[in-house]
Design a protein around this nucleic acid. Structure first.
Length: 813
RNA sequence: GCCCGGGUGGCGGAAUUGGUAGACGCUGCGGACUUAAAAUCCGCUUCGAGCAAUCGAGUGCGGGUUCGAGUCCCGCCCCGGGCACCA
């Protein structure tokens, strides 16, 4: 064994061993305890950044730990290869998105291998390949047959100068990021997947998904947003069709003093026909980005339409307004406003001097000042509500609902905040939507035998619309039904479609179906790891797709991810590392300088996986120093002479106790708690103890061998290369990746003495060493006899004595 | 605006079920080795008072529950993530 730690050499040796032995390629081994460990696959954006290194390292630690626990571990890797950045890079550098993407993939794959991740590369997936995306085209056509997809108008951000649809990210302060033009809302026909058909199942299963963080489950629950309410019809004066609104607060119906519709609503458009100032306002409402964050934070504006509606219970006339915060796409495009009991309605009413009528008062009789703010609590009872006065929330809800239903003016409904998933993108670098439009047959799905619809690679991207639209060889096709000339859909799928089923495809990456019977062996994913920024969209869509695959008969699994770990960001100087901020650190330079193990160790040690991680150059150097100390400790041991036979010394006993205490803690930290940082800290403590220990006898020497072996084994998931070498140096022929996890020797944990903390009135006043078998009374007596304790007790009477066994005594005086 | 997190020394963090606040690492300071420096090793390192024993204060802010609160409850402040076309 070399006296000095040379990462470059030992990492190359370990990686060569894994590569030559195909150490991480797995197949379906019957009866094995399978463990499917999966990282959210990366978008191939260029080189690996620190965020990648962190999530990939966390996943690799989990995968390698479970392998050492004897499980049959699958850890695949692939590429979420379609998306907007490739188009932007293509415009900037005048090249094809495909060339840029494949070059990035090659670069990132090589970097991953240099970091020593235990991937089964035989299952590698790339979503921009027709052999991958053909199956989601196939599924789309099946869903078309089942009525789970449909085409409908919906709103996009329109750049009137570039004549193109913008992503929310491309709208900056209401303007297009390239043209600088004011963005408009525009409605265009788009394809939707009916995720709302699965809303109840997606919601109900959250209660049972105890392998997921509660925060993510809560976010999804709120996102789906199931509510029980009433659809109420208001007759519109001089119109035949009533106006329908949904409310969860029918108990406040008597306080409805106005209604508001969206700018695109037919009633608003009709009213604007002969009123230029109203038409101008509707035009202004269009001049805004479509994201909810923008709509909810912009100044609320409105105008009266000069149309009245009729209150369904009182028969009073109530004015109808148009407001910029009401969206046509959500619900019915109309809302009922109760300013006294809804804060947004209250502010709007104040702004436009609309009446505020209190119809609920606190049940406890306390006063509320409706002039100061809306009173939104449900802990009240009705007032000013005719025969419903005095009723509590639920009573009033039921009574008013019954009345409206009896009058034919209302209907109890369950409503969801969740909206169907719009999957159409007016972009080139994506999966073609497999639809052909025929003047005679309408929208026709591409027949199975004509799939895949292959995206022509190598088209020139300009930034003004998708090049597919003008690519006649792609667009012009005969109708599959009637054979007459027809045109292909030129929109592509949202890239979330590709990432909604890749986890299943890894199980059978070469199947001539979407997935084959191997899916049943590997699914569900046992541990999924990725950024918390995916807590809602990606994870909800993936859950939805799993159910779609189940319901077309491809799977029997309900939920795709049994356990979920959401890792935090990598920060530097308190901000997320990003090219924009110019605070990035290139992982490659660190790997070149310190080796992969040091980078991996720092990533794991600096913070628990779920928290953000603050970058520190000095911390990386510290991780490297620790590996040198570990190397030196093993070198010192294997190059020392074995002392003569003799029993274990007291310090040898201490080392054995520390070894087995550490084994117990580290196993719990890796397995149950997933706090890998504290696992590493515990092994550092053990290594420090080994360094201070000078074996006097053969048994002492054996204890040091045992301690070093345990330390190496426990660090193997984090720093597999140095562990590979050291395990060999400690005298083992078999590779450390297949060595079993160390087992706790309970007898080594036994102690003769324990420390008891002494408190007076809850304040620390002393410590006490007592035999482990000391009785409660003996300990309390000794506590009261303690000199410092007596200083604080003096002649005061002890009112209460609290004894926490093995921990503390608290005297209350 | 709404939903979900987070806030502990000079810094990253630890404290697992309400029971010793600051493990482990970094930085800094002091020392050893060296002609010297680097590397390495040893010691100290929450703040204040004290020669010391020890005492007081302290986990974003203000209250509360408890023998005892970083941990539980109520009300705030600040920072981060998401908000349906970034992935």
């Amino acid at each position: 064994m070399d006296a000095t730690y040379d990462p470059a050499t030992i990492e190359a040796e370990a990686q060569k061993y894994w590569h030559d032995n195909r150490s991480f390629e797995v197949d379906e081994k019957p009866g094995a305890d399978k463990f499917y460990c999966l990282t959210m696959f990366p978008y191939p954006s260029g080189k690996l950044h620190m965020g990648h290194v962190r999530v990939l390292t966390i996943s690799d630690v989990i995968a390698r730990f479970h392998r050492m626990q004897g499980r049959h571990v699958l850890q695949p890797m692939g590429w979420d290869a379609f998306g907007m950045p490739a188009e932007n890079a293509a415009i900037k550098h005048d090249l094809a998105p495909s060339d840029w993407t494949y070059a990035n993939i090659d670069q990132m794959r090589a970097q991953m291998d240099r970091l020593g991740f235990a991937y089964d590369w035989s299952r590698e997936l790339t979503t921009c390949r027709p052999e991958y995306y053909r199956w989601e085209q196939w599924l789309f056509t099946k869903l078309f047959e089942k009525g789970l997809v449909y085409r409908q108008n919906s709103v996009v951000n329109w750049d009137p100068v570039d004549q193109t649809v913008l992503a929310n990210e491309q709208v900056i302060d209401g303007r297009g990021w390239r043209s600088g033009a004011l963005v408009e809302r525009r409605e265009i026909p788009q394809w939707f997947m009916r995720i709302t058909a699965y809303a109840d199942e997606l919601l109900d299963e959250l209660d049972r998904m105890d392998g997921w963080p509660t925060s993510v489950r809560t976010m999804q629950r709120n996102w789906i947003g199931r509510s029980e309410g009433i659809e109420i019809s208001f007759d519109v004066v001089d119109h035949d069709e009533p106006l329908t609104v949904y409310t969860t607060r029918p108990d406040t119906l008597y306080g409805a003093t106005y209604l508001a519709v969206a700018a695109e609503h037919p009633l608003a458009v009709e009213a604007a026909a002969d009123r230029p100032e109203l038409a101008a306002f509707l035009q202004e409402c269009q001049q805004t980005a479509s994201s909810e964050a923008v709509l909810e934070t912009m100044a609320k504006k409105g105008m009266p339409l000069g149309i009245d509606v009729v209150h369904p219970l009182t028969g009073e006339r109530v004015p109808l307004w148009v407001a910029n915060f009401v969206l046509m796409a959500y619900g019915t495009g109309a809302v009922m406003a109760v300013p006294a009991h809804d804060q947004r309605d209250w502010e709007f009413a104040r702004q436009y001097d609309l009446p505020i009528r209190q119809v609920i008062e606190p049940a406890d009789g306390s006063a509320v000042d409706i002039d100061a703010a809306a009173w939104t609590s449900k802990e009240g009872r009705c007032i000013n509500s005719d025969r419903f006065d005095g009723l509590a929330f639920q009573e009033a809800f039921d009574a008013i609902a019954d009345q409206l239903e009896a009058d034919g003016r209302g209907r109890r409904t369950i409503n969801y905040r969740l909206r169907d998933w719009g999957v159409s993108r007016q972009r080139y670098w994506g999966t073609p939507i497999p639809i052909i439009y025929c003047d005679h047959c309408g929208a026709v799905p591409v027949p199975e035998e004509d799939l895949p619809v292959v995206l022509p690679e190598g088209l020139k991207v300009t930034g003004a619309g998708s090049p597919l639209v003008t690519h006649e060889a792609f667009v012009s096709v005969p109708c599959p039904t009637c054979g007459r000339p027809a045109r292909r859909e030129t929109d592509t799928f949202d890239t979330f479609v590709e990432s909604s089923w890749y986890f299943a495809r890894y199980a059978s990456p070469d199947a001539d179906r979407m997935v084959d019977e191997r899916e049943a062996y590997w699914m569900p994913v046992d541990q999924y790891i990725g950024g918390v920024e995916h807590a809602i969209l990606h994870l909800l869509y993936a859950r939805f797709f799993q159910k779609l695959m189940r319901d077309v008969g491809l799977s029997t699994v309900d939920e795709p991810f049994a356990r979920l770990l959401t890792q935090g960001m990598v920060l530097k100087d308190g901000a997320k590392m990003s090219k924009n901020k110019g605070n990035t650190v290139d992982p490659q330079e660190l790997v070149d300088r310190y080796g992969a193990d040091t980078v991996r160790l720092f990533m794991i040690f600096a913070a628990p996986p779920e928290q953000s991680l603050e970058w520190s150059d000095d911390g990386v150097a510290g991780s490297s120093r620790f590996l040198k100390r570990l190397w030196n400790a093993v070198h010192t041991h294997v190059s020392s002479d074995t002392p003569v036979a003799g029993a274990l010394s007291d310090s040898g006993k201490d080392v054995r106790r520390k070894t087995h205490e550490t084994i117990a803690k580290v196993g719990d930290d890796y397995g149950r708690r997933m706090t890998f940082n504290t696992a590493v800290a515990a092994v550092m403590e053990l290594t420090n103890a080994i360094g201070r220990f000078d074996p006097a006898t053969k048994d002492d020497h054996d204890a040091r061998q045992e301690a070093l072996e345990a330390a190496v084994l426990m660090l193997t998931p984090v720093v597999p290369h140095i562990a590979h070498g050291l395990w060999h140096d400690l005298g083992h022929a078999e590779p450390v990746i297949d060595a079993p996890w160390p087992v706790v020797d309970e007898t080594a944990l036994e102690r003769d003495e324990m420390e008891i903390v002494l408190q007076v009135n809850g304040k620390l006043r002393g410590r006490l060493r007592v035999p482990t078998d000391a009785s409660r009374d003996a300990i309390i007596d000794a506590a009261q006899a303690d000199e410092n304790v007596q200083r604080f007790v003096q002649d005061q009477a002890v009112r209460k004595t609290i004894y926490v066994p093995g921990k503390l005594v608290n005297l209350v005086v």
